[in-house]
């Protein structure tokens, strides 16, 4: 075999292996660990809810898929299904809140009235602002 054929084969092999590796990495990619990532926005639950209520389209464009660090007072803690817990944070509007879904049972120790800070990925606005993939940042007294 001529040396340049060997080199060419080697290059092809490297490209193929890295292609497969890259595909595997993409395929197995996890969701960002919101307890560690830097938030795109830091905001209170009341201000966030108000922004969506006043101008949903603009707020959607600004916040959806971004990591938000939201602080507020817990209005309810609900054991949702499939091992998820929802925490609602009070806003200025009694009919609407910020609902944060956690994939762990850990937040179930919180109760209404607790002041907490949560980091999560914004999914948008239904009747409330919805955050997914949430993590507790800290509990404030």
């Amino acid at each position: 075999m001529k040396p340049y054929v060997k080199v060419a084969l080697f290059v092809v092999l490297i490209i193929a292996v890295s292609g497969i590796l890259y595909a595997l990495i993409l395929y197995n990619k996890k969701h960002p660990d919101t307890s560690k990532v830097k938030p795109d926005f830091i905001i209170t639950a009341a201000a966030l809810q108000k922004e969506f209520e006043d101008a949903e389209a603009a707020a959607s464009a600004k916040y959806i898929k971004k990591i938000l660090e939201v602080s507020g007072s817990v209005s309810s803690v609900t054991q949702a299904d499939s091992n998820n817990v929802n925490i609602s944070l009070k806003s200025g509007n009694d009919l609407s809140s910020v609902i944060c879904t956690f994939a762990t049972a850990d937040p179930s120790k919180f109760k209404a009235g607790d002041e907490i800070t949560i980091r999560g990925e914004c999914s948008g606005f239904l009747m409330d602002v919805l955050l997914n993939n949430c993590a507790i940042v800290q509990k404030r007294k």
């Binding site: 879904t101 239904l126 997914n132």
Partner: peptide
Amino acid sequence: FQALIKSFHFDRALME
């Protein structure tokens, strides 16, 4: 019933 499509969560980020 009302649901946001972006609220559906998958184990694999790529699938989502």
